[in-house]
Amino acid sequence: MTYCLKCQDWISQSVTWSTLFLPSQQTSLCDSCNSQLVRINGAICEKCGRQMPSRMICDDCKKWQTNDKYRDVLQFNRPLFPYTPFMQEIITQWKYRGDYQLKEIFTPYIKKEIRNFYPTKSFTIVPIPLTDERHQERAFNQATAIAEVIATHYENSIITALSRKSSHSEKQSKKSRQQRIKTKNPFFLTKSLETDVLLVDDIYTTGMTIHHAAKLLKEAGSPNIYSFTLAR
């Protein structure tokens, strides 16, 4: 007997032929929670990876493509899950409540899918940083936690090439898109890389954060920058 990571209900692993003879699969969610954890499938926006009714570029990405400064900084983003209310609950519990262990919900999905996402394997993994204050308060950086899972798969190193300025610590969600586009870059470079880069974050909302980070790395000499987020 184990507990569901999300709702802490008992998971009763019923003995079936497969559980009897196959190596037991690590179940981290109960059936009810598991059924709510849907993957992005079917057509996507080829830039940000968002689920779309048909293969096309989404409105957010069209805006990035018309912006001269940011048009070429990011190759593309790939997310695993649509940002549903259920996903929002998990991520809230994970990063705001600080329930670090919840990353185990995502680990098997990341391991399974990451290899299909990118045309190269030789990139440096760069997690999106938190401000020092927030990092202390939260005691962990959720982007680093995801990056670590990816790193074990690729045997690539994680390099903290970016830092976040503390004056920009105000909550992103309170600003409108227009405000965000105008916002100054909240990051600064602590190390320039000559390799391709995989940026890692938990959520891709409008793409602001990822584009800001990518721009700095691109200007510092990284040829190709890709990104991975849990949700879009």
């Binding site: 184990t2 507990y3 802490q8 409540r97 600080g98 670090y100 262990q101 990092h135 005691a139 962990f140």
Partner: peptide, 22 residues
Amino acid sequence: QLFANIPCARCNHTHLYCRNCV
């Protein structure tokens, strides 16, 4: 089962936290 480890940025150690009262 309701304890887990966290690599803690406050003290730079990996240690326990309680999931029961999170």
